[in-house]
Design a protein around this nucleic acid. Sequence first.
DNA 1: TGCTCTTTAAACCTTCTGGTTGACAAGCCC
DNA 2: GGGCTTGTCAACCAGAAGGTTTAAAGAGCA
Lengths: 117, 117
Amino acid sequence: MSADSLSRVFAALADPTRRDMVARLADGDATVNQLAEPYRMSLQAVYKHLRVLEEAGLVTRPPGPQPRAVHLETEVFDRMNEWIERYRGRAERRFSRLDAVLETMRADEEREEEGRR
Amino acid sequence: MSADSLSRVFAALADPTRRDMVARLADGDATVNQLAEPYRMSLQAVYKHLRVLEEAGLVTRPPGPQPRAVHLETEVFDRMNEWIERYRGRAERRFSRLDAVLETMRADEEREEEGRR
DNA sequence: TGCTCTTTAAACCTTCTGGTTGACAAGCCC
DNA sequence: GGGCTTGTCAACCAGAAGGTTTAAAGAGCA
């Protein structure tokens, strides 16, 4: 697998266990043992998952007292969003150019936004 | 690997070739041959990638005249965004709420460490 | 110091992935 | 029908992924 960073992020989130870890870390930092508790797998396996998340930049483990906390980093989410939005937007803009119905809907949306401003 | 649909989407986008295909399809539908053209890999390999994208719901190939067009579906992007935003939002909200408290705790810890040295 | 808990490392197994080649069915055009 | 291009399928291979067990190094506490 290529090691470019976006690939690492998407690959990290392709595993349901790791997505679950991210989901739980969104509610607060946790120690590895707390993180591992709900899973039926060895602690070492959890460390491996953690390593994947860490290398993807999704998680850090700041130095500290021995049961070191695992902390979710949110910056990476921006990079993912950026990618997604770029192509989604491009595709939808193109589509809307070709489709009258969508064109109308978009116009409505814009009018709505206009109204809010 | 679990076959749940979010996993399939993230896994599909974890490959740079497939992300590139998505990027190009955002600018317009393409036949498989057009899609395959820039890559130095067999046509069969391209089909395999396409199959992965298709099973993730990122791409469809509506029936039609023989060189069938590959079409990018944008709905799936919403599901990804939904996931990302949910946890990003949760984490950032928590962080801003606890910002002051955590900052204090960290400062305390550092002072403690300072004391031990 | 010594004990215990945390963390990392290594070897191994099985399954999945990304690629290959080869064969072959299905449409389209003469 | 015959021959091209388009699209699929299957077998195979090397390497990565996700898990296991075992071992051992670090850190904190009594």
